[in-house]
Write a protein that binds this DNA or RNA. Structure first.
Lengths: 187, 187, 187, 187
DNA sequence: CATGAATGAGGGTTCATTCAT
DNA sequence: GATGAATGAACCCTCATTCAT
């Protein structure tokens, strides 16, 4: 059953959500289609469950890290730590990226995709808030969304490379974010 | 047939690449499926041709603008102009976004996606080069790719909003890019 | 396309509605499953169309016969004629019987089944009315429903036999109906 | 296991034979599907066993009643009693109706259906015989079959209504049968 | 050239049946 | 015995693609 989620994660990351077929997931998991449907009522449910597990794991693993930070901590440090954790998380769970580049089609998993996204935005917002005590709420929200966007596009580049090149992209992503946020926090 | 490409552009931007069916494109174009297959060997080919045309149009429309700039022009101005043009281009050709985000699936269409992407990267590179005369080539390339990534994620946010909120995201995107590049060009 | 309805009629009469699979209908018609779905949105629609055609044909063929009859006509004659026509109709359209022994499962064809049944009841009612001018409406309705039920069960016996035996059952059915109705009409 | 048969009876009468799934029967019985298949080789066998038990129960309960009757008993009384018992039996065993109407599909279950039917016919025949001493055997058989058909279609109408309306249909069914048989027995 | 009916592999899903525990 | 997860063929339906007209 974890077997099935693993297979689904693998197929989703390889082919994307839309192109992943229920039977291909079952095949990857080494079970019959019928078995898959004893655990999940439909294909969507697999993605949804996968999504919740990812969100849960994110909270478990990085719960404290994204909790309100002492505003005295240098921003550079906070950004670097957040990026490192985010990259690390995605390398261990490449399906996260697949689910975030969710399906073009609307539906329940689109909602799940949105939930994942919203979770991410909320965490970034809560991380930024101590640094931006005087910024209006809607501006904070925009800043958080922009940061998540940068995160995601940086992640794409990072995952597309290996070794030293990957490291270079990680540094670059940190730079982008730090330089974007530094003026806002008066750092 | 321009008629077919227009229809395809419309359907791709409405439903995304994966969900767009060949027959729905033909219907939208007001021709029979058979006719479609006399112009294109398959669905992928439509996306590929569409991509080429977009690249061509990008070159036609903004050719001069992205041509090497006088390094004396303030970076802020250059970034602002590039972002404005980019947003404008995407509003007039929403299919560009669909093609850049759509195809999770590997295949020839992914290659086309990459070609589009590469074109974009090349243009940004050529724009940056005058500002970064001393930067090693691979670092310039990384900077350009990072910039394109930021562009794309910014675009997503811009397109997702309207009116004043959209304007705010446009400004934010300019900020991100300017702050990212400023230290590099010694501005 | 008539080809498809014919095939459907054949498969429905052989296997019953529930057990008839869309693909088996297509196979019987000598076409591919896809073709079937260009003419009908789903399996139900085939049964529904088949039902309407039957009702239509019933009205076309026997329109005048079931129209209000001169109450002077001997009941025996009317019953005999109605039974003969009914049997004849069913021999030419055996699927009628299959659709009337509709699906246990509820759904749109169940409604169609009901519509067929209601049509039949209405025709019998209109045939009986001139003979039962003083009977309360609900009693007429009951009588009509009872008559249709007798019709149907008689039909089953008739269809299950051949030759002289079949003829004997036809006579028997006429007897049942005549004897049932005679006291009501004061014949 | 009586438990299983009870469950099957319940599921068959609720959903009809075709729509009843083996697993739903097992669930209703509170056992696992595996257990079900230790008592019955397949789904059909359940229906068959259920049918046998119904026949047996019919014989147990109404054995004497349907045994040869004193031909002096007024036919009206005999018919009324038989109908009342038949309706009563079906109210207590609604699965009887499901089994008699359910299986459009040919197969062993249809044979069982026929066996049930044959039993019913035989009982009616034995009831009629004393009244029809001079009728040829095949004609008696036809009369019995016809009577059973009327029974069944009357039953359907009775079960489809409630309260006073149901009572009215019961009376109607008695009328049909009595009027049908009266001339034959010279009543 | 254009047509559009026809194709058929493949998608998601169900369910009678089996078998290792 | 009893279990219930596993099976896999078959179900309904879609859609990229073809070909006779």
């Amino acid at each position: 059953m974890a077997q099935l989620l693993e297979a689904a994660a693998s197929v989703f990351s390889t082919n994307g959500y839309t192109a992943a077929s229920a039977n291909s997931i079952a095949r990857e998991a080494g079970v019959s289609p019928g078995t898959l449907y004893q655990f999940f009522p439909n294909k969507e449910a697999i993605a949804i469950e996968l999504g919740s597990r990812l969100m849960h794991e994110m909270r478990q693993t990085y719960g404290e890290a994204l909790a309100p930070v002492d505003p005295a901590t240098p921003l550079e440090q906070v950004v670097a730590a957040a990026v490192d954790r985010f990259i690390d998380f995605n390398c261990r769970h490449p399906v996260f990226f697949a689910l975030m580049h969710g399906p073009d089609v609307p539906g329940r998993i689109a909602e799940e995709h949105d939930a994942l996204h919203a979770t991410l935005v909320a965490r970034v917002e809560s991380m930024l808030l101590p640094y931006l005590p005087d910024m209006p709420a809607d501006e904070v929200s925009r800043t958080a969304r922009m940061s998540v966007g940068i995160y995601m596009s940086g992640l794409e580049l990072v995952l597309a490379h290996e070794g030293a090149e990957r490291e270079a992209y990680v540094r670059e992503l940190k730079n982008v974010l730090y330089r974007y946020l530094a003026p806002l926090v008066g750092d």
